[in-house]
Design a protein around this nucleic acid. Structure first.
Length: 210
DNA sequence: TGCCAGGCCGGGT
DNA sequence: ACCCGGCATGGC
């Protein structure tokens, strides 16, 4: 059994991203930057209650009202600007999310990375979880877990790690989706809370690739 | 009570 | 090319 199969056997399908719409997913991707998901949920609940969970609403709302709505997610002034920058880009360049995702993925990724506040993880999360593009998302958990298991090096950057996964896995958006979600699931709730000493590591003692 | 959370940017060496 | 401070709330 490879790592993915072990994680899947242990934790089952995760069904990420936890969002009802593509717009909500994109909002979550920005708000969760270096932030606990529980705080992001509160901010999204406020946005929903204020009927701001739509591209056009987010496009029109003032920076101050947006910052006020997302207060609970932390860094709210910064994130209001970043969210605005992203929404403005989408509305101006493509009009709708469906039209945006019709764009070639390589081109779109480069465009997203040019938006202020959108880095590799946020861009890839949007591509994979909102767009269904088969690209592997790397985050702090992925890095920590695979470093600990000796599968990557300290010096490896985001794209090194991403390239490693993508070189060993089938290019499948459903697989990448589940795999990333399982890594987060295992790191957050198993390694950290249930078994902080890693006594019953879900990856097993001898990790096997693919 | 302090530490941390699903990053990213900008300014300094 | 690195390195680092800043950004801020809520949960444990």
């Amino acid at each position: 059994m490879n790592i993915y199969e072990r994680l899947h056997a242990r934790f089952g399908p995760q069904r990420w991203w936890p969002a009802q719409t593509a717009c909500e997913m994109i909002v979550g991707a920005v708000l969760t930057q270096n932030t606990a998901w529980s705080n992001v949920e509160k901010a999204i609940a406020v946005l929903r209650a204020r009927e701001m969970l739509h591209l056009d609403a987010l496009h029109r709302v003032s920076m101050r009202d947006l910052a006020d709505a997302i207060r609970a997610s932390g860094f709210f002034n910064l994130k209001a600007r970043r969210l605005k920058a992203l929404v403005d880009f989408i509305v101006v360049r493509y009009g709708t999310l469906a039209r945006m995702f019709a764009q070639d993925a390589v081109t779109l990724r480069a465009e997203l990375l040019r938006v202020n506040g959108i880095g590799p993880e946020t861009a890839d999360s949007i591509l994979l979880y909102a767009g269904g593009v088969p690209i592997f998302v790397v985050d702090a958990y992925t890095r920590r877990v695979f470093l600990r298991h000796g599968l990557i090096q300290e010096a490896d950057d985001y794209h090194d790690i991403q390239a490693l996964f993508m070189a060993h896995l089938t290019r499948d958006a459903v697989l990448f989706n589940e795999y990333h979600a399982l890594i987060v699931r295992a790191a957050k709730y198993h390694c950290k809370k249930t078994a902080p000493d890693c006594a019953t590591c879900p990856l097993g003692d001898l990790p096997v690739w693919l």
